[in-house]
């Protein structure tokens, strides 16, 4: 299980990411769990699984758009955004969109190729949880959030751009 940093400190991860799932029976076989399921899976079986005893959250791949979530958005305790490779920057836009335009206030978790040197920018875009790639040095990762003391732009971390603060 990957190491999880949430809100700046290490946390025990109670969620399981389902990378792929064939059908609702996969979840029903293990009740009272917390699953993060793919967007397509949720679209196909979300309705059917409304009586599931555990908790269900979803994850979006980088090519998927958070606008597809519609009104259901606010019902998710957690939305995970995937980085298939760390150099794919689309999930930064999805995170900002979630926080800034869709006013989502639950957990936004980075999953996939999540590395120390991208954590600061992720946090500014609205991610507050990070499932680190298995080989990452946790201590170094915890330091990443203070790489910079501030930024020029309006961001989730600092809604006012520097020119309105200086």
């Amino acid at each position: 299980m990957p190491t999880l940093i949430k809100n700046g400190s290490l946390e025990h991860d109670r969620w399981t990411v389902l990378k792929e799932a064939t059908g609702p029976e996969v979840l029903r076989a293990v009740p009272n769990k917390r699953f993060i399921v793919p967007l397509k899976f949720w679209k196909d079986y979300g309705q059917e699984l409304s009586d599931y005893q555990g908790e269900i959250a979803i994850w979006l791949d980088s090519h998927e758009n958070v606008s597809e979530l519609g009104d259901a958005l606010q019902t998710f305790p957690l939305i995970a955004l995937n980085f298939p490779v760390f150099s794919d920057g689309r999930s930064y836009t999805n995170a900002r969109e979630l926080r800034e335009n869709l006013h989502y206030s639950g957990e936004i978790r980075a999953i996939g190729d999540v590395l120390r040197d991208q954590l600061f920018y992720m946090s500014r875009c609205g991610f507050n949880a990070f499932a680190l790639r298995h080989d990452q040095d946790v201590e170094l990762c915890l330091q990443a959030f203070t790489d910079f003391s501030t930024g020029y732009q309006s961001s989730i971390a600092e809604p006012l751009p520097l020119f309105k603060r200086r």
């Binding site: 794919d88 920057g89 930064y92 900002r96 991208q118 920018y121 992720m122 500014r124 930024g151 020029y152």
Partner: peptide
């Protein structure tokens, strides 16, 4: 400069 959304 350091735009967090547009670095990748």
């Amino acid at each position: 400069t350091f735009h967090p959304e547009f670095a990748y």
